[in-house]
């Protein structure tokens, strides 16, 4: 069998300013989560390019240096709260571990963990320290995971679908919590989501990802007002607005990345595709306040 290189994430370039929230939106299989893991160098494949935090290139760090970086400068909140906590370790011990591996003493770690649980809005923190994850609800677990992610005051938190596994009322609470935390700690956040609504709630800039590439990057407001890329438009029309209006689902699937379509990767599903789209790959072009990669952006 011939092994092929799959570029799950290809040629992505973006910046998150301090205290900002940047959303990466895309369908399942578009490479969002791979991007998230790559940023923290936990992606099982090869990563090339540059990942800069405060001018430090994460890809140039040694294993030991990156380990110290993880948690203290950059961390991830995972999607599934029920599987992101060790089931046989007490919640408190797991929280304290984050501190102890970064050089805090046991008693300091305990105090800080307690404080953190209160910060993320967990009542009866002392008692909760002694419980196992299965004794907590999904929302509570996600709060604990958020507490672990912000424990060491990182510069950047990557939230990978932080609310997808929760029901809607809890979603709103968790989103509010993230919003408050990023404001009070000056955290920069990268929010990975497939839900435009969640992105709108939290972020001020968004990047739309399709088949491993960014197709549109810009301020949230202007993208929501006038989506330029056909894929962004399709995503927007997937948001339910009223009961009378029918949803317009986007037909087809994200292409197989071991054999991506020639030209623009979106052209097989694009209602505006022309010959040029099947031949040449479009580049990100600056249009007003954003970047769009589409051959026909001016015409449609």
């Amino acid at each position: 069998m011939e092994s092929r290189i799959i570029r799950a994430v290809d040629g992505i370039d973006f910046t998150v300013r301090e205290g900002d929230c940047f959303a990466i939106v895309g369908e399942s299989g578009s490479g969002k989560s791979t991007l998230g893991l790559s940023l923290i160098r936990l992606c099982p494949g090869d990563v090339s390019g540059e990942i800069l935090i405060d001018g430090v290139n994460l890809l140039k760090l040694s294993e030991d240096e990156i380990r110290k970086f993880r948690g203290s400068k950059i961390s991830i909140i995972f999607q599934e709260p029920s599987s992101a906590l060790n089931p046989v370790m007490k919640v408190g011990d797991q929280l304290m571990e984050v501190f102890t591996v970064h050089g805090y003493s046991k008693s300091e770690a305990y105090q800080k963990s307690l404080q953190l649980l209160k910060t993320v809005g967990i009542p009866e923190a002392e008692k909760r320290m002694q419980t196992y994850p299965h004794q907590l609800s999904g929302g509570m677990k996600q709060r604990v995971i958020i507490a672990m992610a912000i424990a060491l005051n990182p510069r950047l938190v990557i939230a990978d679908e932080p609310t997808s596994a929760l029901d809607v009322t809890i979603q709103a609470q968790i989103l509010n919590l993230l919003k408050n935390l990023s404001q009070s700690y000056g955290l920069s956040t990268i929010l990975i989501t497939h839900d435009m609504g969640v992105a709108a709630e939290l972020c001020n800039r968004i990047g739309i990802m399709y088949a491993g590439k960014m197709v549109e990057i810009g301020p949230l407001n202007s993208i929501f007002a006038i989506p330029l890329h056909p894929y962004t438009r399709a995503l927007m029309s997937c948001i339910p607005r009223s009961l009378k209006e029918n949803l317009k689902p986007l037909p087809g699937h994200v292409p197989d990345l071991s054999n991506p379509p020639k030209g623009c990767r979106f052209h097989p599903r694009c209602p505006y595709a022309k010959e040029v789209c099947t031949l040449e790959e479009p580049n990100l072009e600056k249009i007003d306040d954003r970047l769009v990669s589409c051959h026909r952006v001016g015409e449609i």
Binding site: I40, R70, A84, V101, M148
Partner: peptide
């Protein structure tokens, strides 16, 4: 391959602790 091992790794927990605690 479970997420909590990944979660511990991404918080900077070293290999020995991951093996023993997780």
């Amino acid at each position: 391959e479970l997420e909590y091992v990944l979660a511990a790794k991404q918080l900077g927990v070293n290999d020995i602790k991951i093996m023993f605690n997780h």
